[in-house]
Design a protein around this nucleic acid. Structure first.
Length: 153
DNA sequence: GCCAACGTTGGC
DNA sequence: GCCAACGTTGGC
């Protein structure tokens, strides 16, 4: 099993929205970055755990945990002309973009703030904290996951 | 294949 | 709203 971190802008979609989706969960679509796409397509498996990170907002930080309920499938939005995620260069035979389905597992209250994560020396190499990091889907090492777990457990 | 120009991300 | 950092595009 592997660990991940997904970013989301809480104004668009947040941990409470995910909780409301219940067991069915939410399709994590619209990822249009190749590195993130490769994680989604090749490495994220059913039952993996995901930190939900709230970005570009007032309260930055890890707001909860989700479970992957369905591994990679072609992102349906790339074929939808109406969608802002539409990609005319993508084909049904060879889709360019992928999505996964995740479901709510737990909320972390209060959330683990970005600033508190930065204070932990052992998290220096955590990709989220790297300057200029723009990945919206990133792996979390087991070591880092366990460290972060300790903060709220 | 290089790289300048551009658009986007995301913390501050 | 600013701007640094990064990814993508497209001309050459």
């Amino acid at each position: 099993m592997n660990y991940w971190l997904f970013k989301t802008e809480p104004d668009e979609f947040n941990i409470d929205d995910l909780e409301k989706r219940g067991e069915k969960g939410e399709c994590w679509e619209g990822i249009r970055n190749y590195q993130a796409r490769n994680f989604l397509r090749d490495h994220i498996k059913e039952n993996d755990l995901v930190f939900i990170y709230h970005s570009s907002c007032k309260n930055l930080g890890i707001a909860g945990i989700a479970t992957v309920v369905k591994a990679a499938f072609p992102d349906p939005f790339q074929f939808n002309v109406e969608s802002k995620y539409y990609d005319e260069k993508s084909t049904q035979v060879s889709p360019r973009w992928f999505a996964v389905q995740i479901a709510f597992k737990q909320k972390i209250t209060p959330l683990i703030t970005l600033s508190s994560l930065k204070e932990i020396p052992q998290l220096q190499s955590f990709p989220l904290l790297k300057k200029g990091n723009r990945l919206s889907v990133m792996p979390v090492s087991e070591e880092h996951w366990k460290l972060i777990e300790k903060i709220y457990k």
